[in-house]
Design a protein around this nucleic acid. Structure first.
Lengths: 137, 137
DNA sequence: TTGATTGCAAAGAATTTGCACTGGG
DNA sequence: CCCAGTGCAAATTCTTTGCAATCAA
């Protein structure tokens, strides 16, 4: 139950927060990576009277709480996805926007080696691949 | 000579374009990755009367011409660097902003394999590593 | 000369913030 | 009941655009 999850984060279980969580959980066949605007439109369509500013605020809180991850894909706006704690990278279709996720131990390992060699202590990284998906090729 | 380079791209050798090229070529000990704003300030300091809008326009033209690359680092604005045709990735210090470049064949290779496996035709990618540099550790 | 280029100011797009009102605990 | 949370509109930030003036070829 979302209500309990929110409480455990020290957040009141308000309607906007519950609705936004629900939307993020409903991963569509297409993508579970949504912009604030997209979430807003879904809510409007569902006759929920929730402001766009609230969506940004809630997503930012969720991000701070570690249950949502924010991505800045090329050119576009921020997109948000539920963060289950498992790291993964992304590959995006530049034509249709389709997003696939992957994780590769070899790349992860190599990144650590490179940082070390350059004298950095790695805290985070972002890897986005862009191309044409099978359908758009 | 920059004038010639600009002409060969079909661009008039105007003062703003030449000045901006010069700034990008002068890679400082700190970084050769600059925001439009930073370039603007450097020009102002040099008593050049060039508008910020012009800088954005020129950089965008340079990007189209393939002599400049634009990056969207985490959170911040766009940064620009001269594009010498050699691909490289970046590692940034989250504290002082220091940027190092690297290129790793193993990672490049692996990216291709992954795209292929997922049915994508790769056109581009961005890899940014974030951490603390030796000085900020 | 003359079309490309620029500066300025105004427009846009995405996101954040101020503030009075509302609702969850 | 009371303060965290919200809606709305206004403010910010970064970037792009319209247009008359200017400049390189």
């Amino acid at each position: 139950m979302d209500t309990r999850e929110l409480r455990s984060l020290g957040l009141k279980a308000t309607l906007p927060r519950i609705k936004i969580l629900e939307i993020l959980e409903q991963q569509t066949e297409f993508s579970n990576h949504l912009t604030a605007e997209q979430i807003y439109k879904i809510l409007i369509k569902g006759n929920e009277d929730i402001g766009l500013a609230t969506i940004y605020r809630v997503l930012t809180q969720f991000e701070s709480s570690g249950i949502v991850k924010r991505h800045h894909f090329e050119g576009g706006n921020s997109v948000f996805e539920l963060d289950d704690g498992e790291h993964h990278d992304h590959i995006l279709c530049v034509k249709c926007g389709q997003i696939a996720e992957f994780n590769d131990d070899l790349i992860e390992q190599r990144q650590k080696e490179i940082s070390l060699a350059l004298g950095y202590t790695l805290t985070d990284h972002s890897l986005y691949l862009y191309g044409y998906c099978a359908a758009c090729r």
